[in-house]
Design a protein around this nucleic acid. Structure first.
Length: 373
DNA sequence: AGCTCCCGCCAGCCT
DNA sequence: AGGCTGGCGGGAGCT
């Protein structure tokens, strides 16, 4: 089913052609985080976020659930989430680690393998559900399968086991406990892909090939304490072969296999917001910044991903510059403007920028008129 | 061909 | 009743 046409080329010939990479959860998450991690942002409305990012609300649910699992967000009310920021991650991870180790110690005080970390959670849940009605048991079952719990358990696997590299099928079978129904495995793995993509985009984990079997596996890279000694062991492999998401303009609502001619810039009479692209160059730049931050501030014990806490990211910048930074999408777009190697992509991006700028002028004029009236 | 994971259906919950 | 939430698996893109 693979196309013989170079996707990048095809994309340029027909900008509305479906491209899977543009719609990845990881890229969407990166843009969602950019949207949130700005001065003055305290709470996030799901509708607003979906609107700004040009995606369906359903996708935002996936992201917020995963982000909630590591404390970056917390649910305030229906449709409303509180932005806790990246500084909440170490605490949340630490809590998960403690929780995982505590559960483990009940089962075994010596063995720290992957399956044990989760197996005890299963038995715990079963015990708690024993004298409950079938309805609440059903809710428990649903909760247990939630993306948030799954993401938390996934984090626990990294922090409560001796294993450094975890493949998704290994994680899936650990999370499933003693049940090894092939269909359940497949489903669990699908969800883990979702979670892993989000974590990769946050630079919490990294996808690498397992030296044992050459299969893809994940490694925690952001921050880690040795489960046994408790000593920090921040690690980061320098050469990742991770999939390069977001070399193009990001998520626009367009159905799979459907070239929607109205979907590029103008929708319902409104100019769509410029979608901030994430490219690897930016990612690497931000990683460098993260490392610099770590080195420059001895008190910090957490290497943040590309989207560190707003307060921290400003540490090395003057106050005046801070105010200028990321005030609006235009600033973001120019700050993080990708340098495309590909001419077509570069021109396409320029086209978007131009449209955005003309909209800005139009909007400013409109505002001016309103002020005069 | 197997891996990856987007997409949207639809069940359950909430207001 | 209707909107919100999110588990789930089909199936298409990617490698």
């Amino acid at each position: 089913m693979s196309s013989s046409v170079n996707p990048e080329e095809a994309q340029w010939k027909n900008p509305n052609i479906y491209s899977r990479k543009e719609k990845s959860l990881g890229l969407l998450c990166a843009n969602f985080l950019k949207l949130c991690d700005r001065e003055g942002v305290d709470s996030i409305g799901l509708d607003n976020a979906a609107d700004q990012l040009g995606v369906e609300r359903r996708r935002i649910y996936d992201i917020v659930n995963i982000l909630e699992s590591v404390g970056v967000l917390s649910r305030k009310a229906k449709n409303q989430y509180k932005w806790n920021g990246f500084s909440a991650i170490p605490k949340a991870v630490d809590l998960l680690k403690k929780e995982g180790l505590k559960d483990q110690s009940v089962v075994s005080s010596t063995s720290h393998n992957v399956a044990n970390v989760i197996a005890c959670n299963h038995s715990d849940l079963k015990e708690k559900g024993q004298d409950k009605t079938s309805v609440s048991h059903k809710i428990d079952n649903r909760k247990e399968k939630s993306l948030m719990i799954l993401a938390q358990n996934f984090v626990k696997l990294f922090h409560c086991s001796d294993v450094d590299l975890i493949s998704l099928d290994k994680a899936a079978s650990a999370l499933l406990g003693d049940m090894h129904d092939p269909m359940a495995m497949k489903t669990k793995t699908r969800r883990l892909y979702d979670i892993a993509n989000v974590f990769v985009s946050m630079n919490l984990i990294e996808k690498i090939r397992s030296p044992d079997n050459g299969k893809p596996a994940f490694k925690w890279i952001a921050w880690r304490e040795n489960p046994r000694t408790g000593s920090p062991a921040a690690s980061k492999s320098d050469d990742s072969k991770r999939r390069t998401f977001g070399a193009e303009i990001t998520n626009t609502i367009s159905k799979r296999c459907r070239a929607d001619s109205s979907s590029d810039l103008v929708s319902n009479g409104q100019v769509k917001r410029l979608k901030v692209a994430k490219d690897d160059e930016l990612k690497d730049k931000n990683q460098e910044m993260s490392t610099e931050r770590l080195n420059g501030h001895g008190t910090m014990d957490f290497v943040f991903g590309p989207f560190g806490p707003a307060s921290l990211s400003k540490a090395g910048v003057s106050g005046k510059e801070n105010l200028k930074q990321t005030q609006n999408w235009e600033d973001l777009a120019s700050t993080y403007r990708p340098q495309y190697q590909n001419k077509a992509a570069s021109e396409l991006f320029a086209h978007y920028v131009e449209a955005w700028e003309s909209w800005q002028v139009e909007a400013a004029n409109e505002l001016h008129k309103q002020h005069l009236n």
